[in-house]
Nucleic acid binder design. Structure first.
Length: 579
RNA sequence: GGGCGUGUAGCAUAGCCUGGAUAAUGCACCGGCCUCCUAAGCCGGGGACCGCGGGUUCGAAUCCUGCCGCGCCCGCCA
């Protein structure tokens, strides 16, 4: 109701000025109503009581009477227990809807273009993508889509874990298995057992461990044959990751891969620059920086290790290299890291050092878009290293299977290729929505039934609303585009409620985008679908008595469908025409 | 030990930033609704000392503070 408040402000200002209340006093009080039954916006007058020396309800009464008819065509004002309540009038709602109808962007404007790097997904080569990886991938993808829609230039950065000491043992294991066999195992997505076998040998066989360590040296030394073997591991893993990405329907492609290996040349540069900036210190043979403000278990200042005593680099170094690359090569001014909350402190330290060293300045905005962990039933964080984790691939496959079964049961007319397509859209949509619709910083316990539910506040519920609207339009047979000039009339309460929700859409997209909180958009889309479901029951569209009503309701249907499609699209969720 | 986060009906969550009225939503539960645009739906109902105690305020789920429970971080791993 952002627009309602804007429109109601001038008449309200006049009344308040007559009351002798300064704008700076009452403006912060004016806001959307917390109890919808009372209205859409409200001005609580309790805080004015002391200075005006009157009771809140007397003040509210007088404000309402001073407003008089000045809000005609905008809102009805009423006084209830010290609140001035404003309820949008149906005619105001109608005008808002009419204004949105012809706009392909549905009232969501373009912003001044910034250049973003969004770091997300980041699976590890030769390691399974499990349900925990869903969050970064899905949340990051939604944020990318929202930013791009607002007109920003977005670099997707898939910071794949493709470098480091584990690759010694992985390459040796590859050789032990034989390249062909190993490639096969990795290609079918059995990354988990590959990694575990290698690790098991590493800890139990000294000879293997020694070979692995030597292999790391060869890898870092740029040995050609070793690099070729490393490339096999990376390629096979990426082939598998791409399969998951494609199933999931995310934007990531091979062009977005910027694995750790790509920053190796920059690592010595990081050391040099930190040295030049005078913030590098030597400690026990290592090069470290002290961001300040943190202490370790012993109460000593917490160092950020830049170069280890053995000459190797740490992941902080790699993240600093990323910042240099993104600032200087990609010319980014905004950096989003869609990475789990456990790394919060790490990123705070990295950003701090990057600023101290001048890699970033005040014009650069770096945000750790953190998210909570996925826990198992015992409340433990799901970790790929131990235990049997649920493969992301299996979760997605199960979602599609269940969606297919639901379609067979509820809409047997859908057959063949079309059914497969819808099953994919519905199943994958359910999984994505389940993750996107909760506040991202909270941990959650993984639950098959929750992830795969198709009832209630789920993607299929929103998709269903969309499919029903498409069904109405199929039956109608007219040209949807012609509805953009329709006159809207909101007479029944269900029409008004739907119009309210539709009107709020742009403001919610705004908030969701700027705070990087997809769940806010999810909640609003659900409220739209819910309002539509009530409208659908109470307001016959095609069989309405008057032609004007038919067109008005068709237009509401059209806008509802477009908001659902756009909103879900921004979340990376498709909408079917029928389901 | 230091730090970060979290606690809301049986379950799962939103609301907390920016204080406001009867704490919202879904699942589950109870009762209704398909000769009518898709019942993956709609309508109605029961169910909450918002972890506990102080404080600030006209007003606290929301802000401050102290406890308690849970999770995480504080690796020359990434």
């Amino acid at each position: 109701m952002r627009n309602l408040i804007e429109d109601a402000r001038p008449p309200l200002a006049e009344a308040m000025s007559k009351m002798g209340v300064d704008e700076s006093v009452w403006t912060p009080l004016l806001g959307r109503s917390t109890v919808e039954d009372h209205g859409d916006a409200a001005l609580p007058c309790h805080a004015l009581s002391k200075t005006l020396r009157r009771s809140p309800s007397e003040i509210a009464d007088e404000v309402v009477s001073l407003i008089g008819g000045a809000l005609d065509g905008i809102a009805d004002a009423s006084s209830v227990s010290g609140f001035v309540n404003l309820r949008a009038q149906p005619s105001w709602l109608s005008r808002r809807i009419e204004a949105m109808m012809p706009d392909p962007r549905l009232g969501i404007g373009l912003e001044e273009c910034r250049t973003y790097a969004v770091d997300y997904s980041a699976p590890n080569v030769a390691k399974e993508m499990h349900v925990g990886h869903l969050r970064s991938t899905v949340i990051g993808d939604a944020i990318v889509r929202m930013l791009e829609f607002r007109g920003h230039l977005v670099h997707r950065e898939n910071h794949v874990g493709d470098w480091g000491t584990p690759f010694g043992m992985l390459i040796e294991h590859l050789l032990d298995l034989g390249e062909a066999e190993a490639a096969n195992e990795l290609g079918v997505g059995d990354l988990d057992s590959f990694y575990k076998q290698a690790r098991a040998k590493f800890v139990t066989e000294e000879e293997f461990a020694e070979r692995s360590r030597q292999r790391v040296v060869l890898l870092q030394g740029g040995d050609e044959e070793t690099l070729r073997l490393w490339r096999v591991l990376v390629d096979e893993s990426m082939r598998y990751f791409n399969e998951v990405y494609s199933m999931l329907g995310v934007l990531l492609t091979d062009d977005d891969i910027m694995g750790e290996s790509r920053y190796q040349d920059l690592l010595p540069v990081v050391v040099d620059r930190l040295g030049d900036a005078g913030i590098l210190e030597h400690s026990e043979g290592a090069d470290v920086a002290y961001p300040g403000g943190w202490v370790n278990r012993e109460g000593e200042p917490l160092p950020m290790i830049i170069r280890k005593a053995d000459g190797g680099y740490n992941y902080s170094t790699s993240d600093l290299a990323c910042i240099i690359d993104r600032v200087e090569r990609l010319k980014c001014d905004s950096f989003l890291y869609v990475v789990g909350t456990p790394q919060k402190q790490h990123f705070e330290m990295v950003f701090q050092v990057a600023r101290q060293a001048g890699f970033m300045d005040d014009g650069h905005n770096a945000v750790h878009v953190n998210f909570g962990s996925v826990m198992d039933a015992d409340g433990k964080v799901l970790k790929s290293r131990e235990g049997d984790v649920i493969k992301l691939f299996d979760l997605l496959a199960e979602a599609v299977t269940r969606a297919r079964a639901a379609i067979e049961e509820k809409n047997p007319d859908l057959q063949g290729e079309q059914r497969e397509r819808v099953a994919r859209i519905v199943g994958i949509g359910a999984v994505k929505y389940a993750d996107l619709s909760t506040e991202r910083t909270k941990d959650y316990v993984f639950d098959w039934e929750r992830m795969l539910s198709f009832d209630g506040d789920t993607a299929p519920y929103l998709q269903y609303a969309h499919a029903r609207i498409c069904s109405i339009f199929r039956k109608w047979g007219g040209d949807r585009g012609s509805l953009s000039e329709s006159e809207i009339s909101c007479s029944l309460p269900e029409e008004c409620l739907l119009a309210r929700r539709l009107t709020d859409f742009p403001a919610v997209v705004d908030e969701s985008t700027h705070a990087y909180i997809p769940h806010r958009l999810c909640a609003h889309l659900h409220s739209i679908a819910s309002a539509f479901a009530s409208f659908y029951e109470a307001c016959p569209v095609l069989s309405a008595e008057e032609e004007g009503t038919v067109h008005s309701r068709l237009a509401l249907c059209d806008l509802t469908a477009r908001e659902l499609e756009l909103g879900l699209g921004l979340l990376g969720i498709e909408v079917p025409q029928r389901m």
